[in-house]
Write a protein that binds this DNA or RNA. Structure first.
Lengths: 247, 247
DNA sequence: TCAAAAGTGTTAGCAATACACCCATGT
DNA sequence: ACATGGGTGTATTGCTAACACTTTTGA
């Protein structure tokens, strides 16, 4: 393949190639540590196909725009947030994943490069996108979605849980200083109540040596004031190649 | 965005969208347990840009062909192999990753959905693709590559090591029955000599309970005959959700 | 009988779990 | 003083790393 033919057959080959529209879809998780809920942002589609159906927020990629930039743009159009974590998830691109393909005689393929994002519900402000539907749904009560978006959601959920266990993404969305209780709540919300004893979680986390005691205390309501920690990026760099467990 | 405009501005918007050519590139690793080498399959480009330069084997996606099918096609065109493992790696799609974009006025974007594959060198036959260049390169002696293929290679290598540690992909490429020594060699070749003591590796692996003793023995040259095991898919299904370590 | 390869056992140290318990603060 | 949340300590259990050892074969 690939250029081993004479000129005539190249255009022949080109006709058999798929033409692509490339979209980026984002699974935006928000963690509500107060109500212990993991939420996903959904929008209601305003055009065919699947008009009126819930779907993941998405967009087509513009000229000179990177895939990641498109993903950030989706976020910026829907929500206002300080800290977030974003990473590419998977590229879904089978034929027949979009009914428009059949309508257009299979000449055009719709490819979705999906991203997953993580924010904190408390730090996030939903930008009312006109009067249309946009809402946070609990991650375990997702309604039927357009296209293969339910599959994408499930995939994102699995990745989120896995990432949280061996990678410090929690500190990307926490404020610059935080208490260990806040970290614990965040993990509990995503992984489920009984993922670990608080005392053991605490010990593991501190032993990693990537949190620095700021000396400050945080007091809210009754109870002993909690120590405020901050993420020590330099210390993390030194051990980033080693396996580590936050569970 | 997304259809909230009147008709006139839709075509205006369409002009600002990128048009995409979607290719699939494959990082095909082969494990040579006899010489303890991890190899990557490279091909020499026969067309501009980067003519004559080494690159990952790749292809453009055809009509009605899934991304994965395209990846399998790349493999089938280059090698003949019994057992293999294949998974999607990452989608590289920034503008300016392909010089053709600039030449064509940034109207067209070249997007690469990359896959990584794993095969065993001993089971693999290279299909001589005409007289042109195609070769196995040791994974730590990769020559300069076209496009961003070096980055893709590095990324694939990291993923391979990670996958090997917590996922049973080794058994996808081993023959249906194998000795524990063969498994150990395979891990040693990828992860480096001193990844683990043989005795401990053995104990961990057997304790997982996903290998079944076939009762048969394998004898080759001097030395005590080795027990032949097979992968117990049913047993694995029961524990696939739990974390497991093969290191 | 010796080398080669397979397979078993033993130990010290470390990490995970499941608790019980002490500390500081608001009401 | 007591409820509330933060923080510490500890005993048990299991796992890991390192290494010594036995078994079965071919030459």
């Amino acid at each position: 393949m690939q250029g081993s033919r004479v000129m005539g057959s190249i255009s022949e080959e080109r006709n058999s190639l798929a033409e692509f529209r490339v979209g980026v879809d984002a699974v935006i998780f928000s963690i509500d540590t107060e109500q212990n809920r993991l939420l996903v942002l959904l929008v209601r589609r305003r055009e065919e196909p699947f008009r009126g159906c819930w779907a993941l927020p998405g967009t087509l990629v513009r000229r000179a725009e990177s895939l990641e930039a498109a993903a950030y743009r989706i976020l910026a159009e829907k929500i206002r947030v300080e800290n977030l974590y974003l990473e590419q998830l998977y590229t879904f691109g089978g034929p027949e994943r979009d009914p428009r393909e059949a309508a257009e005689g299979y000449g055009v393929r719709y490819l979705s490069v999906s991203y997953f994002a993580l924010v904190r519900f408390q730090d996030t402000q939903l930008l009312a996108d006109g009067v249309e539907g946009i809402a946070w749904y609990p991650a375990d009560q997702i309604p039927p979605l357009a296209f293969d978006h339910e599959e994408i959601c499930r995939y994102a959920r699995r990745r989120l849980c896995a990432k949280l266990e061996y990678s410090p993404i929690a500190f990307d969305i926490l404020p610059s200083t935080f208490t260990l209780g806040e970290v614990y709540q965040l993990y509990g919300t995503v992984l489920g109540e009984n993922f670990s004893d608080y005392s053991n979680f605490r010990a593991r986390l501190l032993k990693l040596g990537i949190l620095r005691d700021t000396g400050q205390k945080s007091t809210q309501g009754a109870g002993r004031p909690a120590t405020l920690y901050c993420f020590d990026a330099a210390a993390f760099e030194k051990i980033r190649h080693k396996p580590m467990v936050f569970v």
